[in-house]
Design a protein around this nucleic acid. Sequence first.
DNA 1: GAACGTTAATACCACATTAATACCACGTCA
DNA 2: TGACGTGGTATTAATGTGGTATTAACGTTC
Lengths: 244, 244
Amino acid sequence: MENRWLALKPDETLTTPLYLQLSRKLADAINAGWWQADEALPSERTFSEELGISRVTARKAMDVLLEQGLIRRRQGSGTFITPRLEQPLSRLTGFTEQLRQRGFVPSSVWLERGVFAPSNEEVIKLGLSPTSQVSRLKRQRLADGVVMAIEMTTLPVAYLPEPQQVGTSLYAHLDANGHSVVRALQHIRAVNASGDIATLAGIRPGEAMLLITRIGFNAENIAIELTDTYCRNDYYDFVAELRR
Amino acid sequence: MENRWLALKPDETLTTPLYLQLSRKLADAINAGWWQADEALPSERTFSEELGISRVTARKAMDVLLEQGLIRRRQGSGTFITPRLEQPLSRLTGFTEQLRQRGFVPSSVWLERGVFAPSNEEVIKLGLSPTSQVSRLKRQRLADGVVMAIEMTTLPVAYLPEPQQVGTSLYAHLDANGHSVVRALQHIRAVNASGDIATLAGIRPGEAMLLITRIGFNAENIAIELTDTYCRNDYYDFVAELRR
DNA sequence: GAACGTTAATACCACATTAATACCACGTCA
DNA sequence: TGACGTGGTATTAATGTGGTATTAACGTTC
């Protein structure tokens, strides 16, 4: 049996822990597309035998990728590659956690939080009556003190009566109040940063940004969330996997 | 014992489950036209006897094809080939097919077609030797006569020896020559249009565009295609549906 | 030097899949 | 209508997968 995974073998002579070396090499391999979405990785035992390390070490390396959401485990079955497109969703839910795992210090600055009359676009996309009200959240998303994105969210006031009480995670707040977003439709476009967005994002006006427009639906398939996220192109990079 | 289905026999010595081996070989046989539409396949018992496996194993292999919609079962009667037109649509399609489905008339203007020495980036991403050669295609993509995108594709020369002979659809050409792209990884970023790209796309320099970088893999999971597509933001809109 | 956390190993547990046997239910046709 | 061939399903043993408790060796800290 040929040894296909030799490139992943950690170097015993280095001071870096074996499991960390392996987890990094594995992450690179996954990002390079060695395996496809939902495909099973080699088993922990395979890695331990082929790379000359113990099974628990191989397992611990995979623990890191598990926390990052790159892979998933099923007892008795195997370890599988997480489909790529799910990551943007979990990123928006767990912005804080995701960045922390990558060694950044995450934070956000509130720019606006309150109840307003809806705009025309919001009335249409959320299916509201023009006399109803919406809660609006606007904030800067930071990593290590650098602005990565500007995020503007609108919900019908019924789903978020007290926008002031939202902590760092809107999704956690919604979950706790029984209004989970279960499905989302994302439109990704490129736009030139307008003057005020550029100022908030800390870039020059006119620079290209990714604009992600999101409509979130609850379990009853009712649109309850509308979010525009302006992402700095030097920090964001969306990955999608396509199959026949 | 001479039997017609010996080519389908799974290899007991491999670690791949027997039923998976069989289901793949069966799928190949169906696509190769071994049976006609609505024709009955050999029975589960026939397979199990001729291939030296249990009936449930043969059945399980056929379960996979059933899920893919390749075959249909009728209790008491038999298992039948699904007519091609009812088979599920492929999700990985090229520019040409996508636009045609939306009712546009796609066309393209060749800007470059030939064989070149690879760049550093191409050597790494395609896993080439620096002395090898690549075929390169560069073209404007039009819909109803309007430029929508500028596309630059690179393939190892082995997979596209004669780039001059590519028609409007690269994917159709590759399919016809047995080098189908089965899976692709796409990175989506926002960029400001450079001078020459802007000229080709018919927009002003500095305008935001979507840059889609794609790595295409063949059935053996080897990277065979590298494509950069610069999309006009006023025509292109990348949509994704996410679920929890 | 003692206490502690990290690292990496061994050994065993729980669960899922695989692939077999045996039997059930439906269709076809003499 | 009954015999036979078809797909449908329950059960089971073996194998392979992830899950975890325990331990030994090594740093770091006090």
